[in-house]
Amino acid sequence: MTAPDHPDASAVSAWWGTAITYIEPGVIEHRGVPVADLIGRTGFAEMIWFMVTGERCEPPRARLLEAALVAATDHGPQAPSIAVARMAATCGVGLNNAMASAVNTLGDVHGGAGEQCLALYDALLARADAGDDLAAAAREVVAEVRSQGRYVPGFGHRFHPRDPRRDPLLALVEQARDDGTVPGRHLAAALAIEDALAEGRARPVPMNIDGATAVIYGELGCPPPLARGLFVLSRSVGILAHAWEESQSGRRNKGPMPPSILPARLSPDA
């Protein structure tokens, strides 16, 4: 049977059927709400939640989401994704190319710790729900991760003795827990792991940005993979900022090291 030259419009609509957005001439609706009713009335963090989940994010919960998004926007050019954005911006490509190049470096090693940490919190809470003592279960979880030769995702930092984003984020979660905005279970799980990591050590191993934002995403009900997606969305802001700044520098073909430290035979000035 030969396919028709003009496919039925309803078949096309069904093929790409979605509950997210509906359009027709003169009409744009997101999750059933006219876009005109969202513009100027819905914050960006609320809009992210609404589009992704289909649920309204009440202001107290939206403040937590926004705090997590703000906290993870950037960590400077020593972060591989940011360095890639800056190098790409000097190669004659547009901002979209520089941003895509950078985002594509965000994987399990660089950018995936938040998802991994939230999965760890969920596993710990599942043990607690099954009747295990939370502190004892945290020790077991930490021991299991270490026995596999892995680090505990979301804790410790290669640069900061204590990540400066930890305390303000957790303070917001504590306040939201006390206000009844969130249950506080993921916060309890995170602190139990932090305590377990500190046992027998002269120096503690505090939560980093991935561990703290995983607490917020867990409290808001995000599944672990969505936590990574939200991190990528957040870090894209820093990627854009660095790509734009570098694009204004006039530098061409910027490499990972300054020419001054390269051997003379490799220096572009040689």
Rank of each mutant, 00 (worst) to 15 (best):
L170Y: 04
S147M: 05
S234T: 03
S236W: 00
I48W: 11
S234E: 07
G229M: 10
V145A: 01
V12T: 15
E199D: 03
D5S: 12
A198P: 04
I82V: 12
R61H: 14
D37V: 12
V141P: 04
P164K: 03
M257D: 06
A67N: 05
A62P: 00
H186P: 00
P59F: 14
A45D: 00
L262M: 11
A241C: 04
I39K: 02
D8R: 13
P25H: 11
R251V: 06
F159W: 09
L38Y: 00
P161W: 04
R86Q: 11
G250I: 01
A11R: 14
G94P: 13
F231G: 01
S267I: 01
G26Q: 09
G17F: 12
M51R: 12
P204N: 01
S267G: 09
V205K: 03
G255A: 11
L233E: 09
P25C: 10
A88W: 03
A227D: 06
E245C: 05
P268L: 01
R150K: 04
G76T: 04
A36I: 13
T181Y: 13
L38M: 09
L191A: 02
E199K: 04
G26R: 06
A270R: 14
C117F: 11
E246L: 00
V35D: 08
L233C: 14
D108I: 15
H6D: 13
C222L: 14
A71G: 08
G184I: 07
N253Q: 08
R177A: 14
T181L: 07
P34K: 13
P256Q: 08
P59Y: 14
I209W: 07
P223T: 10
R165G: 02
A192W: 01
R252I: 01
E66Q: 13
C222I: 03
V152M: 02
R203Q: 13
